[in-house]
Each structure stands twice: as C-alpha cells, then as structure tokens.
C-alpha cells in the first residue's frame, strides 16, 4: 500500500530524518513509535505532501507520490488526522465534516457519508450545529477522524491520536480504529504512548532521532526487553 524508501527530510539545512524506509501492507495497522522530536510528525507531513523531502521516494499503490500536492493525495485516498486534532474551532461540527469532504463534488455521496458518520458517531450528530471549539477533547478526536473518513480513504494516517486524552477515551479511540481497520482501511499510526497502539498493530517501527532503530511484529517488539525499556515504557 505504502512504501517509503530511504526518505531524508530537512528543515532548511538541518536534516531531521535520515534515510528512513518502511512498509505499510494493505489492510494492516502499522505503528511508528518514538520519543518527542524523533521526526515522526515530519515523516507523516511529508507523506501527505505538506513538506518536501530532500531525498528518497514514497510509493503509494505502486505510484510515486513523493512530489504530489496534498489535495491530489486526498483524492487518491490518503488522509492524515493531524497531531492535536486541529479541528476548525469556529466552524460547526457539520461544517467540519463538509470541509473533510471538500474534494468530493457529488452532493449525494457527501450526504450518504455524512449519514454513515452520524450513525457511527451519534455524539457528533447531537452536536452537529455546535461550533467545533465547544467539543470536548475526545469528541474533537472523533470529529477529526470522522472528518478524515468523509472521503472514504484507503490509507488513514493518524498523528498521536491519544495526545492529551483521558485514558478511558484513548481506549475508545483505539476501539474505533480497530473497527475502521475491519472495514478494509489501512492504518498508519504514530505514537509516543505505544501501549494501546501496539495492541492493535500488526507491525511496528521504532524511530530515534531520525533513524529507524528497530522494527518487528507486535510480539517481537514486546519481547525485546531493551526496546521496551528504552522507548516504550511499560507494555
């Protein structure tokens, strides 16, 4: 589905990601774990076209998307749920969802998707006329995910979906991600707190200061004491 090969990313002259390669197989959940400043968000922003890479290539469904603009990528089925949710706080919930479907021209499709989302997220339906800024953190995360699902993506990328949420709500978010996976959506996750992320993942990579230092299946990560101690806390 997604193949990142020897990706190097720099801000100005400062290189922050060095020759990173990883694979996301169709229908799987992949986690990239790592501490603050490891370059996780930078990689995601580069995949979705917000940032230019210095070297390396990104292939999506066999097609080179290294230099593709964000709006084209949305149409191709890649959606990012950004770090900190970033909902439009002065737009209503419904307007946020409509913005999520911005590239979709077919009004009927938009309405159908909206109904599907309201079925899945009854809270958002209740609050559809409310402005986004008045939602709780958990509701905002649901909205951010619903907004991304409005175009029916094939690859859903989430940047720290658990950030700043109460543990009980984090559980809900990951339960939701499992459900989304079951509908055939491939998921790429980035997390600092990997306990939950790992539990739903098929494969994981550990990123440290711009380098991938470990990769393996969920069990391999859990069984690697060094990795667990050094990067992951208690799993």
């Amino acid at each position: 589905m997604l193949k990142v090969d020897s990706l190097t990313i720099a801000y100005g002259k400062t290189e922050v990601v060095h020759h990173v390669s990883f694979d996301v197989k169709k229908g799987s959940v992949v986690t990239i774990a790592g501490a603050n400043g490891a370059g996780k968000s930078t990689i995601l922003n580069t995949i979705v076209g917000l940032h230019r890479s210095k070297e390396g290539s990104i292939l999506y469904k066999g097609e080179d998307i290294t230099r593709t603009a964000p709006d084209r990528l949305v149409s191709k089925g890649i959606r990012l749920v950004p770090e900190g949710r970033q909902i439009f706080a002065e737009h209503t919930v419904e307007e946020n969802m409509l913005l999520g479907a911005y590239v979709e021209k077919d009004a009927k499709k938009i309405r159908d998707r909206m109904d599907q989302m309201y079925d899945r997220f009854p809270r958002l339906k209740e609050r559809r006329k409310q402005i986004g800024g008045t939602l709780s953190g958990g509701e905002q995360q649901m909205l951010a995910i619903a907004r991304a699902l409005m175009t029916g993506p094939d690859l859903l990328i989430l940047d720290e979906p658990s950030l700043g949420l109460a543990p009980i709500i984090v559980k809900d978010v990951f339960k939701l991600l499992t459900e989304i996976k079951q509908t055939g959506v491939t998921i790429l996750l980035v997390e600092q707190m990997v306990d939950n992320a790992l539990s739903i993942s098929d494969y994981a990579y550990v990123l440290e200061t711009g380098n991938i230092v470990f990769s393996g299946t969920k069990d391999e990560v859990k069984n690697s004491d060094d990795i667990v101690k050094a990067y992951l806390g208690n799993v």
């Binding site: 709006d71 950004p82 913005l99 590239v103």
Partner: peptide
C-alpha cells in the same frame, strides 16, 4: 483559521 490543516482537507 488553519492553512495547513485546510491543505489536509484538499483545499
């Protein structure tokens, strides 16, 4: 409100 996030919406 959020130019970068707008790009993520395909705007």
């Amino acid at each position: 409100f959020r130019p970068a996030t707008s790009e993520l919406m395909g705007i």
